[in-house]
Amino acid sequence: VTTYKLVINGKTLKGETTTKAVDAETAEKAFKQYANDNGVDGVWTYDDATKTFTVTEMV
């Protein structure tokens, strides 16, 4: 189990959260659900070296 981080660069919501998951795919599903629940829709990137997902909403 690995800890993954999500950085949110939203128009109205900004911040970070973490989740523990067995792999990046599982973490991504959890983060996308979290973003969807919070009304964040944007471009996703993932950095495997730092285990960090970033979602950026276009203005």
Rank of each mutant, 00 (worst) to 15 (best):
Y46H: 02
A35K: 01
T54F: 09
T17C: 12
D41T: 14
T3M: 10
K32Y: 06
K20H: 15
T52C: 05
V22I: 14
D48L: 06
T50D: 05
E25C: 10
K14T: 12
D37N: 14
I8S: 03
M58W: 09
D23K: 04
G10F: 13
K11P: 09
Q33L: 10
N9K: 11
T54Y: 11
Y34G: 01
D47W: 03
G42N: 01
G15K: 13
Y46I: 01
T12I: 11
F31A: 02
E25I: 12
G42Y: 03
F53G: 00
T19Y: 10
D23N: 11
K20S: 15
V40Y: 07
E16T: 15
G42F: 03
K14Q: 10
N36V: 12
E16P: 04
T52W: 02
V59N: 12
I8E: 01
D48H: 08
L13D: 05
T54N: 05
A49N: 08
G15P: 04
A35S: 05
K51L: 12
Y46G: 00
M58K: 10
V1Q: 13
K51R: 11
V43Q: 08
T56H: 07
V7R: 07
A24Y: 13
T3A: 06
T45A: 09
D47G: 02
T19E: 05
E28L: 15
T18K: 07
G15V: 15
T19F: 11
A21M: 03
A49T: 11
A27V: 03
T12L: 09
F53C: 00
G15I: 15
E16C: 15
G10N: 07
V7H: 06
E28G: 09
G39W: 05
V7K: 09
K32L: 08
T3V: 13
T26Y: 06
A35Q: 02
E25N: 10
Y34C: 04
D47L: 04
A49C: 07
T54R: 05
K14S: 09
E57R: 03
V43K: 09
V55M: 04
D48A: 10
K51N: 07
T54M: 07
K20R: 08
K5Q: 05
F53A: 01
K5P: 01
V43F: 11
Y4Q: 01
A35M: 07
Y34M: 04
K14I: 09
V22N: 11
T3P: 04
A35P: 01
N36D: 06
A49G: 06
T45G: 06
Y46A: 01
G42P: 01
I8L: 09
V1Y: 10
V55G: 00
D41L: 10
A24E: 08
G42A: 02
T19R: 06
D47N: 08
A27M: 01
E25F: 15
K5T: 11
N9H: 10
T26Q: 13
G10S: 10
D48Y: 05
V59D: 12
D41C: 12
K5F: 13
F53D: 00
D37Y: 08
T3D: 11
V40R: 02
T12H: 15
L6W: 02
K29P: 02
A49K: 11
